[in-house]
């Protein structure tokens, strides 16, 4: 394993800085929202992590296809890294949403389309890791993982469309329109600054973590290879 590239070290430092700035903007700079109060401040991190979470799942599906076409292990490393980092960020998204929902909707959880789709998506990627854990052969693990990310990436949008039906025919608790009424708000310019900076910050952090995870995957592969050599 080559030593850590300087670009990655620089990216590490930038990530820490933008995380700090994003936290400052969310906690101090942005004005307190009038209806929800302080808890609205988690919104910036909620949307930021949701964005990189979804980005990672899309990237994983694309690299899955790339692996199946090229059979190059680097796509597999990219895919696992993207799924792992995104699953972590998406977990934060769900928990933050739930914490916000408790004072806003007076419940930790409701089976609204977005929440349900988020939960199902998270479960798909947990299942992805269980699938990989059950396969020893790295090449087969890569193939099956690629197929499963592809299926997951296709199924999640359909899940969202189907669940929306349930809520539009049944009385709407939190739908697209009534979100405005139940905890929706219009952003002031300062809020907008914090919002867009959070998106930017989490994108940088995502790339940084992804890079680290890809390097870790490379190291893993090397150790597996060596173990095979030694035992032979």
């Amino acid at each position: 394993m080559q030593s850590k590239p300087i670009a990655l070290t620089i990216l590490d430092i930038i990530s820490v800085i933008v995380l700090g700035v994003a936290t400052y903007l969310a906690l101090v700079f942005a004005p307190t929202e009038a209806v929800m109060g302080q808890v609205q401040r988690v919104f910036y991190f909620h949307v930021g992590t949701a964005w990189v979470g979804l980005l990672g799942f899309v990237l994983a599906a694309i690299s899955g296809i790339a692996y199946l076409v090229t059979k190059d292990m680097k796509w597999d490393r990219f895919e696992v890294a993207a799924v792992e980092v995104s699953t972590m960020f998406f977990f934060i998204t769900i928990v933050l949403g739930s914490i916000w929902a408790r004072p806003a909707w007076n419940t930790w959880w409701t089976w609204d389309p977005r929440l349900t789709t988020a939960a199902v998506t998270e479960l798909i990627y947990v299942a992805y890791f269980m699938l990989r854990a059950g396969i020893e052969d790295p090449e087969k693990r890569a193939r099956f993982g690629a197929v499963y990310t592809l299926l997951g990436g296709l199924s999640a949008p359909i899940t969202f469309m189907v669940i929306r039906l349930f809520r539009t025919i049944h009385p709407v608790v939190i739908g697209n329109q009534s979100a405005e009424a139940q905890g929706g708000f219009s952003m002031t310019p300062d809020m907008r600054t914090a919002f867009f900076f959070a998106l930017f910050a989490f994108t940088v952090i995502f790339i940084d973590l992804l890079w680290h995870r890809i390097r870790l995957g490379g190291l893993q592969e090397k150790v597996e290879q060596l173990k095979l050599n030694v035992s032979m």
């Binding site: 199902v120 998506t121 479960l123 798909i124 299942a127 269980m130 699938l131 854990a133 059950g134 396969i135 020893e136 087969k140 099956f144 499963y148 299926l151 997951g152 199924s155 359909i158 899940t159 469309m161 189907v162």
Partner: peptide
């Protein structure tokens, strides 16, 4: 069926993808 955990894995893989 090609994995080590084949007795338990199918529903875990199938249900979330078959939700729609």
């Amino acid at each position: 069926v090609q994995t080590r955990t084949r007795d338990v894995l199918l529903p875990i893989l199938l249900f979330p993808v078959a939700v729609p």
